[in-house]
């Protein structure tokens, strides 16, 4: 019967209660897990390094080598930075309002705020 399940699901999203195999959860949590690294790639000379993703590696050397294999297989970069994710401090999105609000009412910081006669030409 093709109406055995009345649950909608999509390709790439199969409900787990429908799973085959044994349903026991294997033991997760590995004391020897490799740390997570964030990867930044400079796509060509003259441009900034840009965040491209992350990966796990035992140390910085391996992180660079893995980043080479994972993120620059098609010549996407000429330089790679890696940093362990735990060293990144991020701003809190819940505080975005207070954090960025002070810039909102200072339109005089933009060149278009100033009206100049046409004779001045490009300035």
């Amino acid at each position: 019967m093709n109406n055995r399940f009345f649950r909608k699901f999509y390709y790439g999203d199969i409900p787990e209660d429908n799973a085959g195999g044994n349903m026991e959860v294997a033991k997760a949590g590995n004391a020897h897990a490799w740390p997570l690294w964030e990867v930044f790639v400079r796509s060509k000379q003259g441009l900034d390094h840009k965040h491209v993703g992350s990966l796990h590696a035992a140390d910085a050397t391996m992180a660079i080598e893995n980043a080479r294999d994972v993120y620059t297989r098609r010549q996407e970069g000429v330089s790679i930075w890696v940093v362990e994710s735990k060293f990144i401090t991020a701003s809190n999105p819940d505080e975005a309002g207070e954090l960025y609000e002070p810039a909102a009412d200072k339109i005089y910081r933009h060149p278009t705020f100033y009206e100049l006669p046409d004779e001045v030409g490009h300035m």
Partner: peptide, 18 residues
């Protein structure tokens, strides 16, 4: 979700793939 946990679910057969 930790990487280990996801891999563990794949290996045990709990998680599905195409």
């Amino acid at each position: 979700s930790s990487r280990d946990e996801m891999i563990a679910h794949l290996l045990s057969g709990k998680a599905k793939y195409s």
